Computed example of a mutant assay.
Amino acid sequence: MWLPILFLVIGLSLGLLTDLQIPAAYSDYLSIAVLAAFDTLLGGIRAHLERKFDEVVFITGFFFNVALAALLAFLGVQLGVDLYLAAVFAFGVRLFQNIAIIRRIIIDQNLLVKLRKK
């Protein structure tokens, strides 16, 4: 569980402490990278709660997701089609699914704790 939180803290720290300006031409790529990062982070949290977390899967999943999404965006720019929207849609769906599953796991764990106390 510590690895997703570590990368979240590192990323937030770098983002807040630097005055990095991203050109508007790269905004599509950045949006996909952020969605891929959140997808991987929430997937790692979900895997930890399900007791299935694997650091290798977490790290490789992050880089593979970002690379694939960037490739889609690049191909879309070359073809003149907004292909990055496919990645945005896919990551968006996965984000909401992971959040729903995490919420369900937390609710179930809290209910079990309350039932054990009775």
Score class of each variant (00 low, 15 high):
W2R: 09
L3A: 02
P4R: 00
I5A: 05
L6W: 05
L6T: 08
L8C: 12
L8F: 15
V9D: 06
V9T: 10
I10E: 04
G11A: 06
L12Q: 04
L17F: 14
T18D: 01
D19K: 14
D19V: 07
Q21V: 10
Q21C: 06
P23Y: 03
P23D: 04
A24C: 06
A24T: 12
A25W: 10
Y26E: 12
Y29W: 11
L30I: 15
S31G: 15
A33V: 15
A36H: 03
A37M: 13
F38L: 15
D39P: 09
L41M: 12
L42D: 00
G43I: 02
G43E: 03
I45K: 04
R46V: 00
A47V: 00
E50K: 13
E50H: 07
R51N: 06
R51F: 06
R51P: 02
K52G: 01
F53G: 02
E55C: 07
E55K: 11
V56I: 15
V57N: 03
I59K: 13
I59L: 15
G61H: 03
G61M: 04
F62E: 05
F64H: 04
N65S: 14
L68T: 14
L71H: 08
L72H: 02
Q78F: 11
L79G: 05
G80Y: 00
G80I: 00
D82E: 03
Y84V: 04
Y84K: 11
Y84A: 08
Y84N: 10
A86H: 06
A87W: 05
F89T: 14
F89G: 10
G92Y: 08
G92H: 07
V93W: 01
R94Q: 15
R94I: 15
R94F: 14
L95H: 12
F96T: 08
Q97Y: 01
Q97E: 03
N98C: 06
N98Q: 02
I99D: 07
I99T: 10
I101E: 13
I101H: 11
I101T: 10
I102K: 01
R103I: 08
R104Q: 12
R104P: 08
R104V: 05
I105H: 00
D108V: 07
D108E: 12
D108L: 11
D108P: 06
D108F: 11
Q109F: 08
N110F: 05
N110W: 05
L111N: 06
L111C: 02
L111V: 03
K114V: 12
K114G: 04
L115P: 05
L115H: 11
K117M: 13
K117R: 15
